[in-house]
Design a binder for these strands. Structure first.
Lengths: 385, 385
DNA sequence: ATGAATAAGTAAACCGATTAACTTTTTTCT
DNA sequence: AGAAAAAAGTTAATCGGTTTACTTATTCAT
């Protein structure tokens, strides 16, 4: 039993790794030079292929291949012998050849919307980290694509499969406005929509429980006595974003608070959008006491805008965000926010995608729980004196 | 596409349709749908390969291949005829096969340090955006790898080439402490170090002109009358980071200002690191009037720490950063900073790498100019009254 | 005219794996 | 003991391109 410590998939938590000691790959230690080679073995850049291994090990090419793929048809003895030779020769199977003759490329693509800073975004970054880690662990590589209009128009997203660049795609940051997603409907090509659903077609998805999150946020605000609560939302084309608005409305409705569009403003997911939305809301409702924000960036923008107008957070207005981005934990005031398990979301989406690739047929529709992180940007409503 | 009428297979779909879909690849002839669909948009999932194209176009496989590769040996007439057939059949060359028989995979890797949020970092994001855009334009795909210690230890960075995953690698965010970089020295495998140099070996690199940037920053501060200037640096193992410190020291030295280690603090490139460093410096030198920061994040941390201690920026202390990250232009106060052409850096690095891949041998050692962006975090030194 | 050079294609050998079908040996079952 | 089944390999076809060497038809220069 070559117990390779095959760790079964747990949803791992983010690694701490900061220290990187690039130790030189000390070339295989078992070099055991028998004859007196005066020169320390220079490296002949001869690329060794599967045939070389087969010849040296005295078996057929097929056997080597089967050893490589851990085919149980090979006996333990041969397995070990061939493995030894593989290491001795430093053989690395050519992935192009493997992909050509097998069904899989072992590559996934992460598709991002064509936003200017999608690649620098903490929200995406967190999800992608999860994807990258799990993909690596499962022996897959990860490509990044941005779905520019031109790219889609030319059908390059489908080309990704057809030309055998990738086995599957994870789509981040899209919504129902992105109609090209329907191209993935036939189950023809493995794709998983991450952190959203898609109404028009039953696509596979994994997303955070925005309804739960919204409830947690509203629980918090309501328990603190807030009744005049505004919302800064974004992307009404996004089902998960609508979930938040729905919950917001119904929770306020339940307690008989007025809730109409004048309490809602679109912050377009951005910093400045959030700021503008906050200014809007405060001017329409000077008596507003709390703000629910669709993401942390907008929450931050709102806080900034409000404090520039002389309001203090949380004394005058409480703010709750969504995301729980790391670097905002240190903001001032630090942000009360709904924690989205973004890293785990990436991990899960990646796992499901690979299962799909391997042939699993069940529909993927998974929803991960959120929780509220209470920090400084919320407090009890001020009693009107 | 237009008519969404026909809902695709629900679980319980009529046997008839299931039958039609599921089986018999036998008659790949047009299954002329008699319904009201005017265009028999048959979607034969038959994968068409180069042989099919050759047969249909009445030429040899070699000719098709040459058309694909725009080989001038093919006459204009044939070229057009074959191209037409390629489009008619919707042929897409299999990249694995292309890679296997040609020298190139058309894939690049971006290697990042194993920092927890490397993928969510605005600095990396900006560079990667440039890389992605240019790579796409030049017909290359982009992979992302994080150089975890284990990854390096197992020699997987070299494996990337040996197994033909990629043609070349761009290394971001590494410094001289990352000794594995020496593995790329032999010019054996195309690699370009981005935004740094590497002392121990003559590696190819492209980086921003940190010396110029530091001079621009110091010009600004000195012209504003500052003499008591501290510096928050990071990663002394990084040549470009040392450039900044060098310039800082020599510029202050020139005007006879005292400059020793007590004016310098390591902010580890992070927000909190910058804050801690600022607190340190201010306690050691309460009379400090300006702070040069190695990046925007540390500058922001410093501003926050200082204002928490009752100092006002820029009234009491001027701050200059490095990077010019987009989302910081809206900070309060907005940050005076040295603009690094990160997007262009990515573009350039990508171009150089692809040239290397194509066989160019000259050493790559390019340095891109910076400029100062004057905003609100700097002002004239207060006259000691 | 005529041999040489050029243009435009083609045939076939690769590239380096996987895998279906088959063979040979060893076990198992009755 | 003898037939059937399982175990452990091997052979050869295949994946889908690129590229070298070779062929044939033209064009060119003298």
């Amino acid at each position: 039993m070559a117990s390779k410590g095959k760790v079964k998939n747990k949803i791992a938590s983010p690694p701490e790794s900061a220290d990187l000691q690039g130790s030189l790959p000390a070339s295989n230690q078992n070099i055991t030079i028998r004859f007196d080679s005066p020169l320390p073995d220079e490296k002949p850049p001869e690329k060794v292929n599967i045939r070389d291994v087969a010849r040296e090990a005295g078996v057929s090419v097929a056997t080597v291949s089967m050893v490589l793929n851990e085919n149980p048809r090979i006996s333990r003895g041969t397995q070990v012998r061939v493995q030894k030779m593989i290491e001795r020769l430093g053989y690395r199977p050519n992935r192009l050849a493997q992909g050509l003759s097998s069904k899989y490329t072992q590559v996934l693509a992460v598709m991002l919307p064509p936003l200017r800073h999608a690649l620098a975004d903490a929200y995406f970054g967190e999800i992608i980290s999860g994807i990258a880690d799990r993909a690596g662990k499962l022996g897959h590589k990860m490509m990044i694509e941005q779905a520019k209009p031109q790219f889609i128009k030319e059908g390059r997203h489908i080309e990704l499969y057809e030309r055998r660049f990738v086995d599957g795609i994870l789509c981040l940051g899209f919504n129902e406005k992105h109609t090209f997603l329907a191209d993935f409907a036939g189950a023809q090509y493995p794709m998983i929509l991450v952190d959203n659903r898609f109404g028009p077609q039953p696509l596979d998805y994994v997303h955070c429980d925005y309804r739960l999150g919204a409830n947690q946020a509203m629980n918090c605000l309501l328990q603190l006595g807030h009744r005049a609560v505004g919302i800064i939302y974004a992307a009404p084309e996004s089902p998960t974003a609508r979930d938040v608005v729905d919950v917001y409305k119904s929770r306020l409705g339940e307690i008989g608070a007025t809730v109409d569009d004048s309490w809602m403003a679109d912050g377009r997911f951005t910093d400045e959008g959030g700021a503008a939305a906050a200014r809007d809301l405060i001017s329409r409702h000077p008596d507003i006491t709390a703000l629910l924000c669709g993401n942390d960036k907008m929450a931050l923008g709102a806080i900034r805008a409000l404090s520039q107008q002389g309001y203090q957070v949380p004394r005058d207005i409480s703010i709750v965000g969504f995301d729980d981005l790391q670097h905002l934990a240190f903001a001032n005031p630090s942000l009360t926010t709904v924690h989205l398990p973004l890293y785990e979301l990436g991990v899960t989406a990646c796992e499901r995608l690979i299962e799909k690739i391997r042939g699993k047929v069940e529909r993927v529709a998974e929803i991960l729980p959120t929780h509220l992180v209470l920090r400084e940007s919320t407090t009890m409503v001020r009693q009107p004196n």
